[in-house]
């Protein structure tokens, strides 16, 4: 008499550099882990010992409030020690390269580097230089994987009780798609999970070329509103827009801002997301942002669970020698230019 076989999913990646390369099984594994860990934050003792003795470094080369704090708290909830590395008060301000900074941190025995950098690809370069886990907390306009994951988590948490999976959902990503790493991470993950995705924005911020990634592109928010289950409203990133992408703030708001009258034209169950920080009155009005369809603060709470999950999976897998060995070999064969990495 034979018992049926049972094969649980196993996570093997030591790094989280983006969502583009992840399979749907890996994406769901992170979301499942986050769901299991969300409960920890509801206990009177909001801590589990899983990462006791591990050290996580927050290496942020760009400003951040939510992501940095969320990663710090997530590491602490998992019992890891956290070093908050501030660029302005470090040797980076004296001209130290990214690779030298990272290798010095690694020499102190850190287990994971959480990096935010203005250059796309910086986390990937770092992962080739160091043996520890590298987690991308946002690189240029390339990817912001944990934001993408927390958006997915919030969507799943909202629609799963109604019997809907990602393949049943239509998600609109609205606004400054061209400069948004959040949009890219969302796009990859949603496409991998079978959701229908429409990118919406003015032609200057939402080029038609995005259609080759298996999504629709629209330049009219009003046309899209009645058909979607989720509206993910992006921040207009004035700091990344080099030239005038739209004639005026007022015009952008008139055509692409989400206000109550537009919300009334959506399905009554529509879910409104925004990665923050918000330009209130520009891409979203206060009434919508703080209204009943908005899950913006829920996103922040879910971000904590998602980052706990990512740290747990990557640091644990990072101690798996067979997985880290190839990265060490690559590091030793890097040329000086490669080792210096993007700054």
């Amino acid at each position: 008499m034979n018992a049926p076989a049972s094969e649980p999913f196993l996570w093997k990646r030591p790094h989280l550099l983006g969502l583009e390369d992840l399979s749907s099984a890996e994406l769901l594994a992170i979301l499942d882990t986050a769901r299991a860990l969300k409960e920890v934050s509801t206990r009177s003792i909001k801590k589990v010992p899983a990462l006791r003795g591990k050290v996580v470094v927050n290496l942020f080369f760009e400003d951040s409030t939510r992501t940095r704090t969320s990663f710090r708290l997530a590491a602490q909830r998992m019992s890891a020690d956290v070093i908050d590395f501030s660029v302005s008060t470090s040797s980076v301000s004296k001209g130290e390269t990214l690779s030298d900074t990272a290798r010095n941190l690694e020499a102190m025995g850190v287990d994971a580097i959480v990096i935010r950098h203005r250059s796309s690809g910086a986390p990937h370069a770092l992962a080739r230089m160091v043996r520890c886990s590298v987690i991308n907390a946002g690189d240029g306009s390339h990817e912001h994987p944990t934001q993408g994951l927390l958006d997915l988590f919030t969507i799943r948490e909202t629609f799963e009780p109604r019997g809907k999976t990602f393949s049943d959902l239509h998600v609109a990503i609205v606004g400054d798609v061209a400069h948004s790493r959040v949009a890219r991470s969302n796009l990859w993950a949603l496409v991998h999970l079978g959701a229908k995705v429409t990118l919406v924005g003015p032609t200057t911020l939402c080029p038609d070329e995005f259609a080759r990634f298996g999504v629709k592109v629209s330049h009219s928010l009003d046309d899209v509103l009645p058909a979607v289950d989720v509206l993910n409203i992006l921040r207009v990133q004035f700091e990344r827009i080099a030239s005038a992408a739209f004639p005026s703030i007022r015009e952008y708001s008139r055509f692409f801002g989400l206000d109550e009258s537009r919300l009334r034209r959506c399905r009554p169950t529509v879910l409104v997301l925004h990665p923050g920080p918000m330009n209130r009155g520009l891409e979203i009005t206060t009434a919508v942002a703080d209204g009943p369809r908005s899950a913006i603060l829920q996103q922040v709470s879910n971000g904590l669970a998602v980052r706990m999950a990512v740290l747990y999976l990557c640091i644990g897998a990072g101690s798996f020698n067979a997985a880290t060995a190839p990265y060490l070999e690559k590091r030793l064969s890097l040329s000086d230019d490669e080792a210096r990495g993007p700054q």
Partner: peptide, 14 residues
């Protein structure tokens, strides 16, 4: 939990 092996996915506490 941090042994030399791939990571299993937790189920959560109820």
């Amino acid at each position: 939990v941090m042994g030399a092996r791939p990571m299993t996915i937790p189920m959560g506490t109820l």
